[in-house]
Simulated assay, not measured.
Amino acid sequence: MRFKASIRNISTFTRLTASLSLLGKDVWLQLNNEQLRFTVVPEQGSQVWAVLAIETIFETYTIQSAAENNTINLRIPLLALNRALRSALNATSASIRLTKKENVPLLSLTIITNNLTSIRPANSITTTNLNPENAPFPEDLSANDSFAEPNAAGFFPHDRETTITQDIPVVVLAPATVASIHEPVCPQPDVHIMLPPLLQLKAISERFTKLALSTSTSATRDRRAADAPASSSRLILSANAHGVLRIGVETPALKIESKWEGLTNPELDPEQVEGGEEGIRVHASTRMKERHGDEAWSVVRVEGRDWGRVLGVGRLGGRVIACFCHEHALILYVYLSNEDTESVLTYYIASYSA
């Protein structure tokens, strides 16, 4: 089993792992000859199924395994991976490979830099080593991975090229282990709509959630309202096929809503819909376009704090299409484009009952 790649877009890789770490502790990374798949399936909250073109993150890329399509499945701690990547943001070059030390599988991130005064190593990485051929310090490092020399104020010398290697413990998953993991099955979406800027949505959503929780404080003193804190933190999201999106919250003491108009409802691609043109004609979203008034709205109810964490994906940029499955789920497609390819991150957010 072999995997090695040079990283072409360390900034995107870092922001991606940061957004995923908000939703779960570990990520299932599937590598093969054709693509990268990042999957986060927490016990509670939103799921992420991100399919990225190899070129989105890596430049040179070598993979080999006994599995079909040279597939390798890894479970990686997101916090450790993100910390290691952050330390490489100002590096001259960075590469990553799958290795093993003392029979423990590791992802080894190697950073080469000439401007060491701008880089501090990430703390809390399980194993961190300096290349002894280039390093001016002893190979035996302290347990807390602090590389500071007594008179260096925590910085490396800046008069030579230095290589820093950070090792992240991983678990190699057998094909049978992941064979039963599948994306959630959802009904046909009723509404497809292009979302406004996610950072704008995030600010409003967090404000509404705080207002709802603050107004429920007095209600929780009444035993009959024991469930108020959980239900009051849920946001009501709705959209129609006429370019309108609403987000609001409703409690016994508060009702507030924001609305966006003039948004785009993307047309379905016949090549992506079963049955082609005929499939589009009978699709749920086509029927929704003919409705008006209250019947024209597709509604989902999401937990406010979980929704706020999902909107953290806005740091990656790109266009975002929301698919509303009435009273069932909200699916977000986040499209990331570079010069040659377009990758998509898929977020599944379950809807609570009314």
Rank of each mutant, 00 (worst) to 15 (best):
V51P: 00
V51L: 08
V51E: 11
A53H: 11
A53M: 06
I54Q: 11
I54K: 14
I54R: 15
I54W: 07
E55W: 00
E55L: 07
E55K: 11
T56Y: 00
T56L: 08
I57Q: 02
I57C: 07
I57M: 01
E59H: 10
E59Y: 07
E59P: 00
E59A: 12
T60Y: 02
Y61M: 03
I63G: 04
I63E: 08
I63L: 08
I63V: 14
Q64G: 04
S65G: 10
A66M: 02
E68Q: 11
E68V: 09
E68L: 07
E68R: 09
N69V: 04
N69A: 13
N69Y: 07
N70G: 02
N70H: 14
T71C: 05
T71P: 05
I72Q: 09
I72T: 11
I72G: 11
N73K: 03
N73F: 10
L74H: 13
L74A: 12
L74Q: 13
R75G: 02
I76R: 12
I76P: 12
L78C: 09
L79N: 12
A80M: 14
R83C: 01
A84E: 04
A84L: 03
L85K: 09
R86K: 15
A88N: 03
L89F: 00
N90S: 09
N90G: 02
N90C: 00
A91N: 01
A91R: 05
A91P: 06
T92M: 01
S93H: 07
A94F: 03
S95I: 02
S95R: 09
S95C: 05
R97T: 07
R97W: 08
T99W: 08
K100Q: 15
K100G: 10
K100C: 14
K101P: 01
K101H: 15
N103R: 14
N103Q: 15
V104C: 11
V104H: 12
P105F: 04
P105I: 06
L107C: 13
L107H: 15
S108L: 14
S108T: 11
L109W: 06
L109C: 04
L109A: 08
L109D: 02
L109T: 05
L109S: 03
I111D: 08
I111W: 06
T113D: 13
N114F: 00
N114K: 05
N114E: 10
N114R: 05
N115C: 01
L116V: 00
S118H: 01
I119A: 03
I119D: 00
I119Y: 00
R120S: 05
R120F: 04
P121N: 10
P121K: 03
P121A: 11
A122E: 10
A122M: 09
A122T: 08
N123K: 12
I125N: 11
T126F: 08
T126Y: 07
T127I: 14
T127C: 08
T128R: 06
N131V: 05
N131P: 02
N131F: 02
